[in-house]
Simulated scan of single mutants.
Amino acid sequence: MSGHLSKRIMKETERLAKDPVPGISVTAHDENARYFNVILAGPEGSPYEGGVFRLELFLPADYPMQAPRARFLTKIYHPNIDRLGRVCLDILKDRWSPALQIRTVLLSIQALMSEPNPEDALNNEAAELWKKDAARAKEIAHQWTLEYAR
């Protein structure tokens, strides 16, 4: 199976296993080594703290020339994550560079959880609340974390 996987993907996967990112667990799928199951701990000091979030990460055939795709499988209240779990993050779109890696993407998603960007929203309702009443938005995000990310 690894014959058709690029050396780059194999090296990144090995590095993630040997030198894991704190608060992030990444496992390549048995049937498809371009598909990863990700467990992400809610960042400390964020409304997601204490939560455990499941994500999927997929590397397209032309990775690293094309950005990976990431999606939350755990329900989350966040201005940059829609109800289908899609993530609005510049490096997953127009700011992607082949110099970036899976590790960078996951760290960026974790950082986005700590610092939402309501100006670049996928969930407009959450973004509007974040702009008008950040304390209330964080309260809802924390409630959802307790309800869905345990």
Rank of each mutant, 00 (worst) to 15 (best):
P64Q: 05
I39A: 09
C88I: 12
S25I: 07
R54V: 12
H78Y: 04
G23Q: 06
V21G: 05
P79W: 00
V105T: 01
P47Q: 05
N37K: 11
S2V: 03
K75L: 13
R83L: 12
L122C: 10
A33V: 09
Q101N: 14
E49G: 07
A149Q: 15
D82V: 01
A61G: 02
A61V: 12
L107D: 10
G45W: 01
A149P: 14
H142W: 06
L55C: 11
D62P: 02
L122T: 08
N32C: 12
G45K: 05
N37V: 07
M1H: 09
A17Q: 15
Y148K: 09
A135L: 12
A149F: 15
A134V: 01
L5M: 12
P43S: 04
F53Y: 15
L73D: 11
W144Y: 14
A61S: 15
F72V: 09
C88N: 09
G3R: 01
Q66M: 05
P98Y: 09
Q143C: 08
N37D: 11
S97Y: 14
H29Q: 03
V38R: 05
D94Q: 15
K132I: 08
F36T: 11
D133F: 06
G45T: 02
A33D: 07
D82A: 04
M1E: 11
D133T: 05
K7L: 10
E147M: 02
R83V: 14
D133V: 02
H142R: 15
L89A: 02
I81H: 00
A111Q: 11
A33C: 07
L106Q: 09
T74R: 12
R54G: 10
L73C: 13
T74H: 11
R103N: 08
A121Y: 12
V87H: 03
A17W: 08
Q101A: 13
W144C: 04
E125Y: 02
V105H: 01
Q101V: 14
L59S: 03
I109Q: 08
Q110S: 15
N37A: 13
G50L: 10
L5K: 09
S114G: 15
E12P: 08
E125V: 03
S97P: 12
L73E: 14
H4T: 12
I76Y: 01
A141P: 03
Q143Y: 03
R86N: 15
K7P: 08
I81K: 00
I140G: 01
N37W: 05
E139A: 10
Y77L: 00
Y77R: 00
L122V: 10
S97K: 14
L107N: 13
P22N: 10
M113G: 08
L106I: 06
E119K: 12
A137K: 11
I109A: 09
A134S: 00
Y63M: 00
A99L: 04
I24Y: 07
D120V: 10
K131C: 02
T27Q: 13
S97W: 06
A134W: 00
F53W: 12
W96G: 02
